[in-house]
Design a protein around this nucleic acid. Structure first.
Length: 974
RNA sequence: GCGGGGGUGCCCGAGCUGGUCAAAGGGGACAGGCUUAGGACCUGUUGACGCAGGUCUACCAGGGUUCGAAUCCCUGCUCCCGCACCA
């Protein structure tokens, strides 16, 4: 039933072309949300992301804006290539994922061996589910990022950047699988997820004209080296470096290329572990394998320290990992707990000392201090080992000791006085300068390694760090560009505001970005066709493309040259231009919609997509075309756990629509959290949402029942309202409209619904409960109030639950589409705090009577009510004017204005009011007698007692009337 | 480490430009009403104490500012997120 209704309205909107937005005389609003990368089916997390802009778009249309809400598909990139090949290889994990989680039908599955088919299949899936959700998208502008005309657009953009000298050539390390011959991301890994690439410095220790090349994070500790470690049980090899220089050609082409050590060096022979060759050969491409070396022949011999020129012995150590670095370690016992303890172990290992005849050498080794630390001795490694009671090389606490010391030295360490050149410098600074100097003097090289081993590709091969060279980069490090981008940020609205400092941070932090790739779907670099444009780079200013997509999609791509895009996007129209009518129209459309008003996107894209978006707009477009606003989204949880397709912890959006209907899904997603917060899909609460929406649908029937006739919201019979409770209902309605409107203005969908749906529903419940004794009488004021509420309510909820609202609108006499109605405008005059107060007074009296009944364990038969006399109101007003609970002032002024002859009574009450005024806000005098009389039936019914309202205290046996306070009548219960 | 954001009642979560906050709303639990019955709906209870509408203790911990702090300031503890070549 629900489904039919939803389909019906979707078709009617479509037939009426409601969401096809073209330039007109109205004020425009252009909103986009990150276009999806369709490599899988849409789940409820995506549902939230795309519902928010739809709600906002619908809301703004009702406010009279001409809203453009388009959608496209970001299909460029590498992941689908991997997915396709895994499906081709019948990888069981992938097959199960696509069959069970993404629910791809059996007959479609084999077709997913084609990456193009994958994105086609899922972008169609996305399109269909978005339609089922009722999104108000202008589908005429739909496109994929592999469309020929889009490629032309991307090419134009890159050429713009190149012309502005914002593109350069360089090298970059990536995770790489030698087996597949491709770079690999985390999602391509069997093992080693989360491993990062660390930069190490490889130092050259000379022996016989060859080099041992241990790598380190801490080149400054070279001054504290005492020996080298090699693992006698590992195979080592000799490699020739720098013999072949054919790769130097690239440098001639581009003089801007940074000086790279591995290209400069002369021919050298290095000794490294056989296992590290795999990794190093991908970073130094001029590395050539020579012969094997027996480490046992080297142990006991001496190498030369590249900086101090001292000679260090080579010693055996089992802890040396042949896969890490070069499979060699230089030992700094003063500052590395592992080295310190390994040395201790060796000193005590007489057998080993004898085997290599090392006794004399080892006994002479003394730890050398490099770094001074407060509260540590000259040999901090020893301090830490003793503190944590590390027993041996094998002790697991050794790692903890190492981490602790590395951290402290990094953050607090100062280079000791006896170290030449950098004495007194902070460790962080000295580390950089020493590294730079050594590299400059050809005494060191930069190398990369994973933070954790092993890293294994899905194909089973061990991954390596490969230097991709002759890469193209966008110069996000360029200071002028950063300045412009910050300007762009400064003029944007950022929601939530806390994110602004994040953006600022990222703009500063971003360095040059590799914008070219070897594999994936995408556009070729216009000036270097061996490279594809990286998929974040091709999606920075695509919002501009939406504005003209409906025209250029069908145009011959050859026409779409630089001149065309320059005219459309960058030129000012003037009389002399000989633009064709077509180009002119396209340009006018772009100028109408741009700048973009709102860009919505997920939180994790702040550091890349969204920042790039600002970078590119800032440099390509003039200021008046810069984006105006950004809304950043939180994540989705499922029953408290993080949603993840790859772990199977998702509910597909199509499934949710099937189970609950689009409107329930929309309502839940919009009401359970604000867009930037994480929402949690809990089935129990979804069901609760469903019930409440049903209640809303049935509300009209309830009114009909009271009225005993059909309601026609187009023709509500107006009745003047006399009773407070009826005015109260209208007051609440206006209050809820007001709060919801303000909330929606800043995308607070949750607050908007909280006010306009959940709290308003409570108000209605209350009102109907409160007027239940009137309902049988077909009270015309009640019917009027409820009908008015219904009519407004349907409108307010229309952006959230559009199908339900259209249906209700349609079946209760509404004309046309409800989403074409004017958004309700609240009437400030009808929001009356005094009315609210009077209802509070009634509720409090009922509560108090019940409370007293409970305490006295008796049921009241008669309740006498006494209201506060005039002078007490005056005192309250006076206190309110003073504004703070200053008893002296309140009493003083009260006496001065002669409010009561009985000074004692006056001061007693003044004391009371100082306490009261911090609890209850003074909103002006209300006619308590009238209020009470209007509610006397209700109070009597609720309390089960006879209510007697006294205008004076002629009957007051227990002298209770003196307790009466404004807003708080005194009670005497019999 | 760098950067950002948090810690609220059984749970989730609002409030946080200081007083109307014992603290919204939802979920759960309990009681009552409606009803043949109810997981549906409505009403109420859900920190402690109190035989007259009140009092006390409370918003991570400790300190401070203030007539007054969940809300402002300092200190500590603790949790979450991002840190790149990837959408």
């Amino acid at each position: 039933m629900t489904k039919e209704i939803e389909k019906k309205w979707q078709k009617r909107w479509d037939d009426a072309k409601l969401f096809q937005s073209d330039p007109n005389e109205k004020e425009k609003l252009f909103i986009t949300v990150a276009y999806p990368y369709p490599s899988g089916a849409m789940h409820i997390g995506h549902g939230r992301t795309y519902t928010v802009p739809d709600v906002y778009a619908r809301y703004k249309r009702m406010q009279g804006y001409n809203v453009l809400f388009p959608m496209g598909w970001h299909v460029t990139g590498a992941p689908v290539i991997g997915i396709a090949s895994r499906i081709r290889d019948k990888d069981p994990w992938t097959l199960e994922l696509y069959e069970k989680v993404h629910k791809v039908p059996k007959e479609e599955l084999p077709k997913l061996i084609d990456p193009e088919y994958i994105v086609k299949y899922f972008s169609t899936e996305y399109h269909n589910v978005m339609s089922d959700m009722g999104y108000s998208i202008d589908w005429r502008r739909e496109f994929r990022t592999t469309d020929p005309s889009y490629k032309k657009f991307v090419e134009w953009q890159l050429k713009q950047l190149k012309a502005q000298d914002l593109v350069k050539k360089g090298n970059h390390p990536v995770k790489y699988c030698p087996g597949c011959g491709n770079p690999i991301g985390d999602h391509d890994l069997l093992e080693g997820e989360g491993a990062t690439i660390n930069e190490l410095t490889l130092l050259k220790f000379e022996i016989d004209g060859k080099y041992l090349v241990p790598a380190t994070f801490r080149p400054e500790t070279i001054y504290g080296a005492t020996n080298l470690w090699m693992n006698p049980d590992v195979s080592y090899i000799e490699v020739e470096k720098g013999g072949d220089i054919k790769e130097k050609e690239g440098m001639k082409e581009d003089k801007n290329i940074e000086k790279e050590g591995d290209m400069e060096g002369d021919r050298e022979i290095w000794i490294i572990s056989e296992k590290s060759y795999n990794n190093l050969s991908n970073q130094f491409k001029d590395l050539k394998k020579l012969g094997n070396i027996n480490p046992k022949e080297l142990i006991g011999r001496f190498v030369k320290n590249p900086v101090t020129n001292t000679l260090h012995p080579i010693l055996p150590a089992s802890f040396v990992d042949p896969e890490y670095g070069s499979g060699e370690v230089f030992s700094v016992p003063a500052h590395a707990p592992a080295d310190y303890i390994a040395l201790q172990d060796l000193k005590n290992n007489l057998k080993l000392l004898e085997e290599y005849n090392l006794g004399k050498i080892v006994s002479k080794i003394e730890a050398l201090n490099v770094v001074t630390l407060k509260r540590y001795s000259e040999i901090p490694a020893k301090d830490v080992i003793e503190k944590l009671q590390v027993k041996s090389q094998e002790d697991p606490k050794l790692e903890e000791a190492t981490n602790e010391l590395y951290k402290v030295e990094h953050s607090k360490g100062i280079i000791s006085e006896h170290i030449p050149d950098c004495a007194g410098e902070r460790v962080v600074d000295a580390r950089e300068s020493i590294k730079e100097k050594m590299i400059g003097d050809d005494l060191a090289e930069v190398m990369y390694d994973f933070s954790a081993h092993p890293v294994i590709c899905r194909c089973g091969t061990h991954g390596v760090v490969k230097i991709m060279d002759n890469q193209w980069f966008l110069k996000y490090s360029d200071e002028d560009w950063k300045v412009k981008t910050r300007e762009c940020l400064a003029q944007e609205n950022i929601i939530p505001p806390e994110i602004r400092s994040n953006f600022d941070y990222y703009i500063g932090w971003l360095e040059d970005w590799a914008c070219s790739r070897r594999i994936g779907l995408g556009t070729k670099l216009p000036w270097d066709s061996q490279w594809l444009i990286e998929p974040l780079t091709d999606s920075t200013i695509y919002m501009a493309y939406y504005t003209i997509a409906k025209y250029i999609k069908t145009m011959d791509p050859d026409i779409l040259d630089d001149e065309f895009f320059n005219k459309v996007f960058l030129s000012e129209i003037n009389e002399n231009d000989s633009l064709s009518d077509e180009v002119k129209q396209i340009k006018e459309e772009f100028d109408y919609w741009y700048p973009l008003d709102w860009r919505l996107s997920a939180k994790d894209l702040v550091g890349n997509h969204l920042s790039f978006h600002m970078f590119h707009h800032a440099t390509i477009f003039p200021k008046n075309k810069w984006p105006q606003g950004m809304v950043v989204f939180g994540m989705g949880l499922l029953e408290g756990n993080k949603m993840s397709s790859s772990k199977g912890n998702v509910i597909l959006l199509s499934q949710a629509i099937e189970d609950y209907g689009a409107d329930v899904v929309r309502l839940f997603l919009m009401s359970s959290a604000e867009p930037w917060q994480d929402f949690d899909w809990r089935e129990k609460e979804v069901i609760g949402t469903k019930r409440r929406l049903e209640w809303f649908s049935e509300f009209a029937d309830k009114i009909k029942e009271i009225k005993g006739a059909n309601i026609n919201i187009n023709n509500i019979e107006e009745v003047p309202l006399e009773r407070e409770i009826d005015k109260w209902m209208i007051s609440q309605l206006n209050l809820r409209i007001k709060d919801a409107t303000i909330a929606l203005e800043s995308f607070q969908t949750r607050k908007a619904l909280q006010d306009s749906f959940f709290l308003l529903k409570k108000d209605i419940d209350h009102y109907m409960y409160r007027t239940k004794h009137l309902i049988e009488t077909k009270d015309s004021a009640v019917i009027y109030a409820l009908s008015t509420v219904l009519k407004t309510w349907i409108k307010i909820l229309a952006p959230f639950t559009p199908h339900t609202c259209e249906e209700l609108w349609n079946t209760h006499g509404g004309e046309g589409f409800v989403i074409e109605e004017q958004w309700p405008i609240f009437n400030e005059d009808l929001i009356d705090v005094k009315i609210e107060k009077s209802e509070e007074i009634i509720q409090n009296i009922v509560k108090d009577i019940k409370h007293i009944n409970d305490l006295t364990k008796k049921d009241a038969e008669k309740v006498h009510v006494y209201t506060a006399p005039e002078w007490k109101w005056k005192v309250y007003e006076l206190a309110d004017e003073i504004g703070k609970p200053d008893i002296g002032q309140i009493i003083g002024k009260s006496i001065k204005t002669n409010l009561n002859d009985n000074k004692k009574e006056l001061s007693e009450f003044a004391k009371k009011i100082t306490r009261e005024m911090t609890k209850t806000k003074y909103v002006g005098k209300v006619d308590e007698i009238a209020i009470l009389n209007n509610a006397i039936e209700f109070i009597s019914e609720e309390s089960g007692a006879e209510i007697i309202i006294h205008e004076d205290n002629s009957y007051d046996p227990k002298n209770k009337s003196k307790h009466a306070i404004p807003y708080k009548p005194a009670l005497y219960i019999e």
